[in-house]
Each structure stands twice: as structure tokens, then as C-alpha cells.
């Protein structure tokens, strides 16, 4: 596994973080050092099956029956902005 230089601006955009230029420089250096360490994994013969979880539980389903959830008021209670009993976001269409 090579140690590529992170394109921090691209990753920040994917992460939805408006990093300052100062932060970008700092994180680029730190992440490259962390990845440099993580690259030790490439020196190992890793031929095991991948585990997503420690416990072998799969396909947990519940009965398809309606059950109580939040009321509209409860769901909206922490919204930073609301209008007409809905979440409000910046305009997306002209």
C-alpha cells in the first residue's frame, strides 16, 4: 500500500467541512503521518475473511407492524429553524 499524499481539499468537500486554509495545511500533515503508521498493515499477509462486526448476527428484522414514534412536534423540537411545521433549509431552487 503506497503512502499517497491526501488531497485534503477534495476530502474536506466529501466530508462537508469548510476548512480554513490553516486547518487544511495542519490536517494534511497530521493525516499523512497517521496514514504512514496505518500503512504497516500492508506488511501483513491479511488473507482472512473480513469482519464488519464482532458478533455473528445477521439480518435482524422486526414484525412489520406500526408502532409509536415521535409526534411532529417532538421531531421538530430541536430544529434550529422551522417554518410551517417543517424543517427549514436554504433555498435550493430559484
Amino acid at each position: 500500500m503506497p503512502s499517497p499524499q491526501i488531497d485534503i481539499h477534495h476530502i474536506a468537500k466529501l466530508s462537508r467541512l469548510a476548512l480554513s486554509e490553516e486547518e487544511a495545511v495542519q490536517y494534511q500533515g497530521q493525516l499523512n503521518r497517521i496514514l504512514g503508521h496505518i500503512d504497516q498493515l500492508s506488511t501483513y499477509q491479511l488473507d482472512a475473511e473480513p469482519s464488519a462486526h464482532a458478533m455473528p448476527i445477521f439480518d435482524v428484522i422486526r414484525p412489520d407492524i406500526a408502532r409509536p414514534g415521535f409526534t411532529q412536534e417532538e421531531a421538530l423540537s430541536n430544529a434550529p429553524r422551522r417554518a410551517m411545521d417543517q424543517f427549514q433549509i436554504p433555498k435550493v431552487m430559484e
Binding site: 498493515l41 482472512a48 473480513p50 469482519s51 464482532a54
Partner: peptide
């Protein structure tokens, strides 16, 4: 290169 490899390593650690 990273995530899949880490999941394989996770299996080895559990074993």
C-alpha cells in the same frame, strides 16, 4: 486498501 484490509485484520485479531 484501507477499510477492507482493516476488516480482514479485525478477523485475525478476533481469532
Amino acid at each position: 486498501a484501507y477499510y477492507l484490509k482493516a476488516q480482514r485484520a479485525r478477523t485475525l485479531i478476533r481469532q
